[in-house]
């Protein structure tokens, strides 16, 4: 793992991926904080793991005693539409209102 250079551009890119609109001041703050945490996290690179080639993280938890529980595919009651809509910040009828996407 190479040392990551956390510059303002990287913070902007990550904030964009994370759907956050940071102020210039916040970009500076997170540049400093993320650099500090990432340089600590980079110590993972020191670990020499000798796990079996077939080992996969997404299946390993199952063998450890927790397996995915499946439900029967039957129709059950659910939250009434009116109740689900009640906390929408903006709505039109039974639709959540968002800014126009298509011009």
């Amino acid at each position: 793992m190479s040392k990551i250079q956390v510059d303002r551009e990287l913070v902007r890119k990550v904030a964009d991926l994370a759907h956050l609109s940071l102020s210039e001041q916040e970009i500076g703050l997170y540049q400093e904080r993320l650099a500090k945490v990432l340089s600590y996290v980079e110590q993972l690179d020191e670990v020499h793991e000798s796990l079996d080639k077939n080992w996969r993280p997404d299946t390993s938890r199952g063998e450890a005693g927790v397996s995915a529980l499946e439900r029967r595919d039957v129709v059950e009651g659910s939250l009434p539409v009116e109740e689900a809509m009640k906390q929408a910040p903006a709505r039109i009828g039974t639709a959540f209102q968002v800014p126009r996407i298509l011009e």
Binding site: V14, A15, L34, V41
Partner: peptide
């Protein structure tokens, strides 16, 4: 926000 960005980055 810091943790969301860290998670997004990794």
């Amino acid at each position: 926000k810091q943790r969301i960005m860290l998670g997004t980055f990794v």
